[in-house]
Nucleic acid binder design. Structure first.
Length: 482
DNA sequence: CGCCTGGCACATATGTGCCAGGCGGTGCTATATT
């Protein structure tokens, strides 16, 4: 370790006076040559941890990242800070670009890859010859949340990591209950006793958690009421793309809000445009599916509404956690109907991996395999990889379905609970809630009309402030004939 | 999950009660390759 304190170097390298919660502890653990799993709320600067460590350690920092847009963002951020030795290795590159990066791997300090790319034989061979100072898995809950469902490559990161000679590893995520931590350890092949596990409460003090039970017939009207009262910008989450489209259209007819939709059926160009407009406050509201959110770095989202029941408490916290990054008071409202639960419950138990299918798999007539649904992909790959026999497969599938079911049931229990929602959230992530904010949840303060009112007035003020600022900018532009 | 329905047994000849089975407005999430 150098003589300079970690804080001094933070100032030198990043220009910050002090670390935020969790950053220093994670850095110290990594620098003490320990594998580290850090669970830290969104927007608290998780990427600083590996960037900082990168400058302390010899060799390359290899970051496994779930989204192309996330990789691009990170590379751009690093470059803007003057770090040119950063690149994202993915399918967006031209043949020449990819060849160039692969031929000069050791020239890079920060290298971003997708889990899929990491599985490439060719790349793995090249990476074994590279000095990897730190192996990072960003958004590590994807291992559990996506790997076991539709992106099986997430489950084989550990294998790749082993082949690269067990480099020191850092896994980062915002929300992980114990079960997810265990999945992360298991699939990254980290030993629990040798790993530092740092967990911080994903509970956000400045978010008021509101849960309202409302029939499906009354839902749109209830929503409209919220939209009239809440100051933008906001996000509404839906369980289906069609519903997101329909309701956004309806909102457009009913209000003067500037609304657009965001889901997997929108083109990449549209998605980028919508994100950019939203970031610049040129859109008030986004009607989205779960596709929206990861890597969205917008500070002033005032509310997140769930039109449907989220699939799990983790998902709920990730999505509501996108509100109020600026620390200002914000709202999370969940509109819950019993049918939502029924739907989620039923879907969670649907699978094509029945006995007939498994027998077909065993008899190795794989050529005529029926096409699997997305949510079966992960299970199927594990069954294949571990060469499970019929009864082993059946037990495995049964367990998985049970886990899926429990997630939805836990979410329902949360919604129907008559006790403090915030306490339930904390307990879910194994934290004890020490103090409640003035505006806690719809069970602690059932009447939130005052909160909404103060939010609205404040929102109006800031928007006027922003308008003034833009006007001022326009004047300056005119003055200097820009 | 929870509600509804149809079938069956039972006690009595038309109604009650219980249980098994089905279904409900809607799945969502990404990378890579050619």
């Amino acid at each position: 370790m150098t003589t300079k304190s970690l804080e001094q170097q933070l100032k030198e390298w990043f220009g910050f006076e002090q670390f935020r919660e969790g950053q220093k502890e994670s850095i110290e653990s990594v620098l003490a040559e320990k594998d580290t799993v850090t669970v830290l709320p969104t927007g608290t600067g998780k990427s600083l941890i590996y960037q900082y460590c990168g400058y302390h350690l010899p060799g390359t920092v290899l970051i496994v990242s779930p989204l192309l847009s996330l990789m691009d963002n990170q590379v751009m951020q690093l470059k803007m800070r003057g770090e040119k030795r950063a690149a994202a290795l993915n399918s967006m590159l031209s043949f020449e670009e990819r060849n160039f990066i692969e031929a000069n791997l050791n020239q890079y300090k920060f290298l971003f890859v997708s889990p899929e790319m990491l599985q490439s034989q060719r790349l793995q061979e090249k990476l074994t010859r590279l000095k990897i100072g730190l192996f990072v898995v960003d958004e590590a809950h994807c291992i559990s949340q996506w790997g076991l469902d539709f992106r099986p490559e997430y489950l084989f990161i550990g294998e790749a990591r082993k082949r690269l000679g067990n480099p020191r590893t850092l896994a980062l995520t915002a929300t992980a209950p114990l079960a997810v931590i265990n999945d992360i350890l298991q699939y990254l092949e980290l030993k629990e006793q040798d790993t530092t596990i740092l967990r911080y409460d994903p509970n956000r003090k400045n978010i008021y958690y509101q849960v309202t039970e409302v029939s499906n017939q009354a839902k749109n009207e209830t929503l409209l009421e919220l939209l009239k009262n809440y100051p933008p910008p906001g996000v509404i989450y839906f369980s289906s793309k069609a519903q997101a489209e329909n309701v956004s259209q309806w909102i457009r007819q009913q209000t003067s809000l500037r609304v657009d939709t965001y889901h997997a059926d929108r083109s990449n160009e549209d998605r980028t445009t919508i994100q950019r407009q939203f970031l610049r406050d040129e859109l008030d509201l986004i009607c989205a599916t779960t596709a929206f959110g990861m890597g969205i770095n917008k500070q002033n989202i005032r509310y997140v509404i769930h039109y449907h029941l989220p699939g799990s408490i983790e998902e709920y916290l990730q999505e509501t956690g996108r509100a109020g990054r600026d620390g200002e008071q914000s709202m999370a409202a969940l509109l819950y109907s019993r049918e939502d639960f029924a739907f989620k419950y039923r879907k969670s138990q649907e699978t094509d991996l029945n006995e007939t299918f498994l027998r077909l798999l065993q008899s190795k007539k794989g050529k005529n395999m029926p096409l699997l649904s997305d949510s079966d992909q992960g299970m199927f790959q594990i069954i294949q990889q571990q060469r499970m026999n019929l009864s082993e497969s059946q037990i495995f599938i049964e367990e998985r379905l049970k886990e899926r079911k429990e997630k939805v049931v836990r979410m329902k229990d949360f919604v129907e609970a008559k006790t403090c929602k915030r306490s339930i959230i904390s307990a879910f992530f194994d934290h004890e809630l020490i103090e409640r904010p003035d505006w806690c949840c719809s069970n602690c303060q059932p009447d939130a009309s005052h909160l909404v009112l103060s939010l609205r007035t404040k929102g109006e003020q800031t928007r006027e402030g922003e308008r003034d600022r833009t006007l001022w900018k326009e004047k300056v532009k005119l003055l200097f004939q820009l």
